[in-house]
Amino acid sequence: MKRALIVGGGPVDPRQLREELARKPELIIAADRGGHALLGVGRHPHLAVGDFDSLPEADRSALAAAGVRMLSFPAAKDETDLELALDSAVAEGAEDIRILGGLGRRIDHTLGNIGLLLRAAELGSAARLLDPDHELLLAGRALTLPARPGWALSLIPLTPKVCGVRTGGLAFPLCGEELYLARPRGIHNEFCAATATIEVAEGILLVVLFRESPVPG
């Protein structure tokens, strides 16, 4: 399975970026200002995508001088830079896509980027949005998650109703029940086993893992 790391233009924690790079993704894509974050930790992407309206000219020149492939788009376009980066990752054969710089600062961007998880699934890939305190992904029909000390999770419908939700390894289990977007019953659950399982019969369920304990160090 080809793995990709996309670095967007939102807030990016340098330590987390280094950790993601240490996972050795086969494809690294910078979405516009994401190139600045990568240069800040001494790395170049394989591909830079966007209209580059928020990437300093010095950074753009540095990426071009390093031989990075640059896909430039006009500012007046229908897609966001992160959507273009996601489409590029899928076109390059990535099936496992991790995205930094897609959360925080602006709620409209965050909500739009959650929608990109749906787009990735429609294109046959799995994507995750990450920052130091959150990890967002879709449950699909079945999902297994390892427990994380100091972390909890919420289950949020992205469709008006999600049917047949079954969970295991969580403190507050669901046994084939329904979750509704208008009734946030799935907010804040806790791991009570080494792994948790989530099954969905119908609908789209967002899993939000979040840190309850402070980041060590």
Rank of each mutant, 00 (worst) to 15 (best):
M1D: 07
M1C: 06
M1G: 14
R3K: 14
A4T: 08
V7G: 04
V7T: 03
G10L: 11
P11G: 01
D13I: 08
D13K: 01
P14V: 10
R15T: 14
Q16G: 02
L17K: 06
R18E: 15
E19S: 11
E19T: 10
E20C: 13
P25Q: 10
E26I: 02
I29P: 02
A31W: 06
D32T: 04
G35I: 12
A37Y: 03
G40D: 02
G40R: 01
P45S: 05
H46A: 13
H46V: 02
G50N: 04
S54V: 09
L55C: 08
E57P: 10
E57A: 15
A58P: 01
D59G: 02
G67F: 11
R69P: 00
A76M: 08
A76N: 09
T80E: 04
L82S: 05
D87Q: 15
G93M: 11
D96T: 12
R98P: 01
R98L: 15
R98C: 13
I99T: 10
G102I: 09
H109D: 03
T110R: 03
G112A: 15
G112Q: 06
E122N: 07
G124F: 06
L130P: 04
L130A: 04
L130S: 03
D131K: 00
P132S: 13
D133V: 12
H134K: 08
L136D: 11
L138I: 11
L138N: 11
A139K: 07
A142L: 01
P146H: 07
G150I: 09
S154L: 11
S154E: 05
I156Q: 03
V165D: 10
R166W: 14
T167R: 10
G169P: 09
C175I: 03
C175M: 12
G176Q: 13
E178M: 01
L179D: 05
A182I: 01
A182E: 12
P184R: 10
I187M: 14
H188F: 13
E190W: 02
A194E: 15
T195D: 05
A196E: 04
E199P: 01
V200Q: 03
L205H: 09
L206W: 02
V207S: 04
R211S: 12
E212Y: 00
S213W: 00
G217Y: 03
